[in-house]
Write a protein that binds this DNA or RNA. Structure first.
Length: 744
DNA sequence: CACAGGTCTCTTTTT
DNA sequence: GAGACCTGTG
């Protein structure tokens, strides 16, 4: 096998196939490359069956890419390799064996929303004041319990030993009971229950030992204790475990990531071969210097120095703006300039920020400049109301114990079954130890219900029974089409006639196409088409998974989402104290380590840039409906001035200037484009070239520029480029799918 | 029982 | 500023 394009340490990483291996891979040092070559090497040179190889990645996107790249090297056979994320790995295992630890294999996966609702219900049942024990807090605590593999009994014991407040532990216990009753697992359960399964059923684990002879884990610095134990179980017999990570890029402590998994790997696996990849192939020296200047302020890290042999490149820019509007404007016009000068196309540019909320302003600006973009994250496609509604119907069919799904749709569409009726059934079910659905079936025996109410409930109950019956002989696509038809969901939206309703219909259409796509893939891979499999897939997609790179659009996302990606031209917005580092980390009990985590995040963000990097910061921004004034982020100040183009020590904005202007400024700027109205969805997933209903010479209307006359239409391949002479705004050139011009 | 309108709280980051 | 939650009315 030809390994000539690898450096010495990379080669070592590829060819050291036996025993535990720790690859410490700095940002941009080609670790994905090592992992793919290593896999190919195992197959081609060591004649390992693809079937015996397992690779765990952080996102589905990374998994797919890896599979594709292996295919390119090996030619074929990569399909049999188990490449998946931790969560989807566990789902696959649990769908097979979870009945051995007391669940049904058609379990439902609860997302954060569902978990929150369930907690609410728990607080209700236990008569606990939600003001004193906020749902969010409870969920966080429960999540950390699970990530540390602490079950409710142990949690209670621990608290009692310390004579502390046992409320949250009791909430945890009840929460687990209710999950169990609903035959549901939350995200953390997926890992925890798999570990439990392996501990309790050695014969199951043994099956997997037979199968997984070589195991690789990517982004190892972000694994938590439960994931560590999972891997430990799996690697126990064969010991061929290769983990890749970078302690400087550990940014998921809030999700339970345990940095000691990587720092102490050698202690846990004494015969470990340690390989360091320190040559960076991504960024220019200027960018690397900036990254190193920041990260060197962290104390808890394995020392390493990234080298590069690249040309020096552009100096990193720092821009201090007066307001967040100016910041958005600066970014948009710079991107526009770069594209016009053909230096960086839209698709080569990315905008990163600390919080999702920051995207709105930038988005509005991009729309105004007709720059195509795609936002990653924020509200997940599957958390939209209409999608959750329809998916809940599917969930009810798949898992009849899922009370949460039933109560969600019992009155969607309106069936005249209100909150009172629901809680009466629910109480009855609870008191008589039955599921909500069972109680529905005998609701004429529930004394508290009126005749009229129980008739409506029974009718819905019968419908669900019919639907379940139908599903036994139907494809998922047939089922979903039937549900949409029966419920008249789309019909009802159509009659609303609003733009919002239109959006929702689009989303439902997209959901339906996802079903067909799933079926197509399943057929291609010769897998059985199953509702459960589709639902698992739906529950575990990350937004980033849908990022395709064929489309020439600017990408906006949080720094967390950006991990593992790279872009020639990067903007990091909001380099301000209180925002980045986050106000949460400031003044917290372990401020020191929280800030170090923020600093690692900053390092991750900076090292996404290949050639050009711009940092931005503003003196004032709107947060929570209020203007806040923040100092320049300490991370910027950690960068030596001579590495930056732009003054870090600029005087503060004149309070007198800004504060009097603020309200005016915001009033003027606020009204422009409503982002929602304009929002162009799916730059990525669809071809946007719809036939135009206007032609040269027609009068058209644009949401922002007003009315004008079309003077030129160019077929740009993927989209039409339309030139319009606006009455007031002058001549503008824009892409048809983004401009949304309406003929008048 | 549904819905409109008012009040309150709150925000990191994600599978 | 948004979303969750509560209250009063039809």
């Amino acid at each position: 096998m030809d390994l000539s394009m690898l450096n010495d340490n990379q080669k070592l990483g590829v060819t050291t196939t036996e025993g535990p291996v720790l690859i410490l891979a700095g940002a941009g040092s080609g670790k994905t490359r090592v992992l793919t070559y290593r896999t190919a090497y195992l197959i081609e040179e060591k004649h390992v069956e693809p079937y015996n190889i397992m690779a765990i990645t952080f996102t589905n996107k990374a998994a797919n890419e890896m599979r594709e790249r292996i295919n390119n090297i090996v030619g074929h056979g990569s399909n049999a390799i188990w490449v998946a994320t931790f969560h989807s790995t566990c789902v696959r295992i649990l769908r097979r064996y979870i009945d051995r630890i007391g669940y049904d294999t058609s379990f439902t996966i609860y997302d954060t929303d569902d978990s929150k609702k369930l907690i609410k219900e728990v607080l209700n049942r236990l008569n606990i004041d939600p003001k004193r024990y906020a749902e969010r807090m409870c969920l966080n605590v429960i999540s950390s319990y699970k990530n540390e593999l602490i079950n409710p009994e142990k949690a209670l014991l621990d608290v009692h030993n310390k004579a502390g407040d046992d409320t949250v532990a009791r909430i945890y216990r009840e929460y687990q009971v209710m999950l169990r009753d609903n035959n549901a697992l939350d995200f953390d359960d997926l890992i925890m229950k798999t570990v439990e399964l392996f501990s309790k059923c050695p014969e199951v684990l043994s099956n997997y030992h037979e199968r997984f002879k070589y195991i690789m884990v990517d982004e190892y610095q972000d694994t938590n204790t439960a994931q560590f134990e999972l891997i430990k179980h799996l690697a126990k017999r064969n010991k061929n475990l290769c983990v890749v990570g970078d302690d400087d890029q550990s940014i998921y402590k809030f999700r339970g990531a345990n940095i000691y998994n990587i720092l102490n790997f050698e202690n846990n696996y004494p015969e470990t071969t340690v390989i360091k990849l320190e040559e960076n192939y991504r960024s220019t020296p200027n960018i690397l210097d900036v990254a190193n200047a920041v990260i060197k302020n962290n104390t808890m890290r394995k020392k390493k120095t990234l080298r590069t042999s690249k040309q020096e490149g552009d100096i990193v820019n720092f821009i201090r703006c007066d307001t967040s509007y100016e910041e958005a404007d600066k970014i948009a016009s710079d991107i526009d300039k770069m594209a016009r000068l053909s230096i960086y196309s839209y698709g080569q540019s990315a905008i990163l920020y600390r919080t999702n909320a920051q995207s709105r302003l930038i988005e509005e600006r991009l729309i105004a400049e007709t720059i195509p973009y795609k936002i990653i994250g924020g509200t997940n496609f599957y958390s939209r109301k209409e999608i959750k509604d329809i998916v809940s119907y599917l969930k009810v069919v798949s898992n009849p114990y899922d009370d949460m799904a039933i109560t969600r749709i019992i009155n969607v569409p309106k069936r005249g079954i209100g909150a009172t009726t629901i809680s009466r059934i629910s109480d009855y079910a609870y008191a008589n130890n039955m599921t909500f659905r069972e109680a529905m079936g005998i609701c004429d025996e529930i004394g508290t219900l009126s005749k009229a109410a129980s008739a409506k409930v029974l009718k819905f109950f019968d419908y669900l029974e019919k639907l379940s019956e139908f599903s036994k002989t139907s494809l998922v696509s047939e089922l979903i089409e039937k549900i949409i038809e029966d419920t008249e969901y789309v019909e009802n939206l159509k009659s609303e006639g609003t733009e919002e309703a239109r959006d929702r219909i689009d989303n439902i259409d997209e959901l339906v196409s996802k079903v067909y796509l799933y079926e197509e893939n399943a057929r291609a891979n010769e897998e059985e088409i199953s509702l459960d499999a589709f639902l698992s897939e739906v529950s575990l997609v990350a937004d980033i998974d849908n990022l395709e790179d064929e489309n020439d659009v600017v990408v906006l996302m949080t720094m967390h989402s950006a991990k593992g990606l790279e872009f020639p031209n990067v903007y990091i917005a909001g380099m301000e104290e209180n925002l980045f580092p986050s106000g949460r980390s400031l003044g917290s009990p372990d401020e020191e380590s929280e800030i170090e985590e923020e600093r690692r995040l900053c390092y991750v963000a900076i090292t996404r840039a290949m050639e050009r990097l711009t940092l931005l910061s503003c003196a004032q921004r709107f947060t929570r409906g209020q203007v806040s004034y923040n100092a320049i982020s300490r991370f910027v100040k950690e960068i030596p001035q001579d590495l930056l183009n732009g003054n870090v020590w600029e005087p503060k904005p004149r309070e007198s200037d800004v504060s009097t202007n603020v309200s005016d400024f915001y009033r003027v700027k606020k009204e422009p484009v409503s982002a929602k109205k304009y929002k162009v969805k799916n730059f990525g997933s669809k071809i946007n070239k719809a036939p135009l209903d206007y032609a040269v010479g027609d009068r058209v209307k644009h949401m922002k520029f007003g009315e004008g006359e079309v003077t030129l239409i160019n077929d740009g391949g993927r989209d039409y480029e339309v030139t319009v002479d606006f009455d007031t705004a002058g001549r503008k050139k824009m892409f048809a799918s983004f401009a949304k011009l309406v003929k008048i």
